[in-house]
Design a protein around this nucleic acid. Sequence first.
DNA 1: CCTTTTAATTAACACGGTGTTGAATGTATC
DNA 2: GATACATTCAACACCGTGTTAATTAAAAGG
Lengths: 199, 199
Amino acid sequence: MASIHEEMGQKTKAHIQHHFIALIEAEGFAHVSVKKIAERASINRGTFYLHYADKYELMDQLQRQLLEELQARISEILPKEALLALHQQQLYPPFVAIFQFIGENARPLRAILGDQGDPSFAKKMKRVFGEVLLARLISQHPAAQDEEFRKYMHAFLTSAILGVIQEWLENCEEQPAEEMAKIHFQILNFISQLRTFIQ
Amino acid sequence: MASIHEEMGQKTKAHIQHHFIALIEAEGFAHVSVKKIAERASINRGTFYLHYADKYELMDQLQRQLLEELQARISEILPKEALLALHQQQLYPPFVAIFQFIGENARPLRAILGDQGDPSFAKKMKRVFGEVLLARLISQHPAAQDEEFRKYMHAFLTSAILGVIQEWLENCEEQPAEEMAKIHFQILNFISQLRTFIQ
DNA sequence: CCTTTTAATTAACACGGTGTTGAATGTATC
DNA sequence: GATACATTCAACACCGTGTTAATTAAAAGG
């Protein structure tokens, strides 16, 4: 059977990924080299090339894993129930679950989304937010019929959500996921009161 | 006089910067090498090192120029007048001027803020937005007394603004700067009506 | 226990980019 | 023409890359 060998290979891959993340945290993705990864993971440099073509393919697989799991959790959200919870100022469990997932994967996410990470990943996360969540919400609003306007509205909200997550990731895990979900609700309430404040 | 020589040096530097931007657009910052820059700019590789320590220093100076000019234009904004204009649904000239500047420097900004750019630049731009503009606006609101909350509110809004700009930069200059400023106002109005829509 | 299969190691290779050097060449100023 | 500076050029040692071939290690099945 080949399954055992596959498991061995997977173990090595997980080992490589772990030290890869540590290296990005320490020096940034740009300055990570295959040589450094091999040294840090105590494997031969040749072994790395047995699993990945280069550091970019490694980064790609890492991102895929995170995005797939995130997408699965976002799919749990039902727009109507989410709006109801927001209106009633209650915490919506699938919403909290997303922050929990982000918290559990804080290290790799911080490394990839951070200052020395991969700029293309931010856009990929925005796309996940957008496709599953906002597209259904915004499109219902009468003012969002204008194609042009909706595009920028979309960019505004997805960027805002990601921005809050990035801020949370940087200040480490001082706040638990539930706290974070609450803050997100508060922000939405604050925003909707802005007009009242201005007048 | 050394001034002429300085001008010569500046001319070469501008020449290098120009082709550097073109290279980022074509291959992304990570894949840009000093050798490629020299070849593309038709200068000797040694000449590059006469002006910059490496490609990172070149990127740094480019970013500094853009951020300084942006900061100067943002400083022109008077919070009270801006809020008044927003309330009266009028275009606020200093606001339009910012979008004009961004439009004029679309190529370098797109290259640096884009998928293959420098992830740290996004944060630098958010800081410029935040320090000059939002800090004064948000801090006036009673709900923003909580330090923790204000931090995330800050992240939410600066990220949202930058997100709209990034979206604009990608879809090239189909929309003029004034159009863009209008759309931004529309978004703020839309946001403030969200609560009404939800209820 | 021995054979087969696959994973991992090792050393060597050519290649290409880096950053620095010293000497030479151009070029504008005084 | 002498001076000061920008630029060129060739050469240097260094380092990371991606690939190769030969070797060792480890687990699986007969």
